[in-house]
């Protein structure tokens, strides 16, 4: 018998509309559980990025209820949102690194925002730089790094604060297959430490790389549950490799 897992994200009849246009997301109802690994798939325009934006608190839904870490974030006053955002790591599809900062400073940014003292952030940042194989490029600006290196810096920046939820939008889109698998293993490592990981991807081959991962599929702004991702306990995408 499985012990019930803690719900970290709870969507109930959520809809998202940009301006006066049609709904980008319609009637999404699901729960994500602590320490799980989810792949979010779907064709371009299916609403993956919109759903991720709701997950990393870039938007509030047009309707419905979203609970994160047990609190209703739809009605939450905006001055409380930064505290929640610090618990969520984000890897953007286009990296969104700050080009005027070095790789070190880009990775250190979330810790600085959290108010960590300079003397206390050097160790973790250097350790993470070594982990992603960029220890010797700490002072390099993003513009001098390759696409794969930039991707790794973006991932390091997302995970440096040990987030409870990691949201990644096409994190392997700009890297070769070998590097893609390596990055996914990095996510899996973080997942093993208890982080809930949500990876949006087109690449269905990646789905089989993570043991115990579950799949959410979006089509025309609506969610299907082909692998039982939303069940508790969820049905893993693959049981054993």
């Amino acid at each position: 018998m499985h012990a019930p897992m803690q719900t970290v994200v709870d969507f109930e009849n959520v809809g998202l509309r940009y301006g006066a246009g049609a709904e980008a997301l319609t009637d999404l109802s699901f729960k994500l559980f602590a320490g799980s690994f989810y792949f979010l798939t779907g064709a371009s325009g299916a609403g993956k990025t919109s759903l991720l934006k709701l997950l990393y608190l870039a938007h509030r839904p047009s309707r419905g209820m979203i609970k994160m870490f047990g609190e209703d974030i739809v009605t939450m006053p905006r001055n409380r949102l930064p505290g929640f955002r610090r618990r969520i790591g984000v890897v953007f599809q286009d990296f969104r690194l700050l080009n005027h900062l070095s790789a070190f400073d880009n990775i250190a940014l979330p810790l600085r925002i959290s108010g960590i003292e300079e003397k206390d952030l050097e160790g973790p940042v250097n350790e993470l730089l070594s982990w992603i194989g960029l220890a010797d490029r700490a002072s390099a600006r993003p513009t001098t790094l390759s696409g794969g290196e930039q991707q790794r810096v973006a991932i390091a920046r997302a995970v440096i604060g040990r987030p409870e939820i990691l949201v990644a939008d096409e994190p392997t889109g700009n890297v070769d297959p070998e590097m893609a698998i390596k990055l996914l293993q990095l996510f899996a490592g973080l997942n093993k430490l208890g982080t809930t990981v949500i990876v949006a991807t087109h690449d269905i081959h990646l789905l089989r790389e993570i043991e115990g991962a579950q799949m959410m599929r979006l089509k025309d702004g609506q969610l299907s549950d082909p692998t039982g991702a939303f069940k508790n306990p969820a049905t893993p995408l693959i049981l054993n490799k």
């Binding site: 870039a58 929640f84 955002r85 984000v90 940014l109 925002i113």
Partner: peptide
């Protein structure tokens, strides 16, 4: 704007 958006999404407060 892009820098501020990133910082905002990482949890920067308005005061920061």
């Amino acid at each position: 704007r892009s820098t501020l958006d990133i910082m905002h999404l990482m949890g920067s407060t308005d005061s920061q």
